[in-house]
Simulated assay, not measured.
Amino acid sequence: MLDFTFHNATKIIFGRNTEKKVGEEISKLGKKVLFHYGGGSIKKTGIYDRVVESLKKAGVEIFELGGVKPNPRLSLVKEGIELCRKNGIDAILAVGGGSVIDSAKAIGIGVPYEGDVWDFYSKGKKVEEMLPLGVVLTIPAAGSESSGGSVITNEDGWYKRSTNSVNMRAKFAIMNPELTFTLPNYQTAVGAVDIMSHVMERYFTNVKNVDFTDRLCEATLRTMIRNTPIALKEPENYDARAEIMWAGTIAHNDLLSTGRIGDWATHGMEHELSAIYDIAHGGGLAIMWAPWMTYVYKHDIERFAQFAYRVWDVEPDFRNPEKAALEGIKGLKEFFASLGIPVTLTDAGIPDDRFDEMAKKATEDGPLGQFVKLYKDDVKKIYELAK
């Protein structure tokens, strides 16, 4: 286990009707608030009205900016930055899922910065400050409600890039599982893949003697495996939705990273898919995981065998761990398919004519991954395996 410092200052407010507390919480952060959200779903479900009522009751001045798309766009971020500067906005409220929260973070770090906000995503500019951010989570998936990360897509060249800082965590996150009852099954499914992906990116590590966090990772994965099918079959099953929502936060708040180094190559490869083809992030990850695993598993067969034993209940065969490792990879792919989502590029309608371009863009800042370093040719081969 490596040395580490763990600090997560996001206040979690979890449970039924907690969105009614949003005005009380955001008013502690500012008096002029940017209310940032996506499309019309929060208005159809009544969340919008409840949030506005709470904000007005708290006496905050509201400035709205909707229109966040999946794979949030840099152009809207820049619009939000100008809106905040023009009106002296001193806090941001993100109501939605990871795309909305990531966009809000980008706006928050862009307002006090004199340069181009894209510098944080493309040039490694360090984040020193951000407007205080509050969150009402409506889609458990990205874990952005208490992570230090943000992912934005630049329409100029369709680059999807991330930035990360301890200064980018939300001050509070309101999490009511009831707000997820109306999610379409597809969003529930790809959100579950996103959550599991955050765990697996951390799980496949070269660091030894990390059994405690291994067990935490495995428990989180098993929780998702058990509860996601329940939520798909019974959308208003509060207990299943609650388990998924809390697992999504734990998967990406860095607790599972403690003492270990994660990989993140699969995320890097998927970003090229969703930047160009605008596929849901979790949908792209469902396609890329098995090919990545198939390509790298021989680097540490014992870890993949452990994944098979502990997560997928593959019968231990210590004389043939490779067989178990392959069974675990098969189990993951079959589980994703059971959620009703594509698990190959062909099934998702994604052609194979831009693999070279995607591999080049994915590795232009250096090889992907920490578990196994992947260069352009490696990445292209994994895209081929994903067909």
Rank of each mutant, 00 (worst) to 15 (best):
K330N: 15
E82R: 14
F172R: 07
K330T: 15
G30C: 00
R16M: 13
T346C: 12
W264H: 14
V135H: 03
V136W: 00
E270T: 12
K360A: 14
G67M: 03
E322L: 00
T346V: 14
C84L: 02
R50I: 06
G331Q: 10
K105S: 04
Q187E: 14
L2H: 13
P229C: 05
V111Y: 07
N17E: 15
D347M: 14
N154S: 12
T182S: 15
M175D: 08
E178A: 13
V22F: 07
I250S: 08
V311E: 09
Y295T: 07
K125E: 15
E327V: 08
G124D: 02
H252G: 11
G80H: 02
W312N: 10
G340W: 02
V22A: 03
K333C: 11
A247K: 01
K333N: 13
P140I: 03
A359S: 11
Y113N: 04
L93G: 06
K381A: 15
F14M: 05
T213L: 10
L183W: 04
L179Y: 04
A142T: 15
N71W: 01
L216Y: 10
A240M: 01
Y309W: 14
K360S: 13
V314T: 11
L232R: 02
E384S: 06
G143P: 00
P351A: 01
P351N: 05
S162P: 12
R222E: 06
I382K: 05
S146T: 13
G340E: 00
C217M: 04
G46S: 01
K333Y: 11
E25G: 07
K57C: 11
K105L: 01
V111R: 06
E53I: 10
S122G: 12
Y297I: 04
E129Y: 13
W118K: 08
G124V: 02
V95L: 08
K160I: 01
K20T: 14
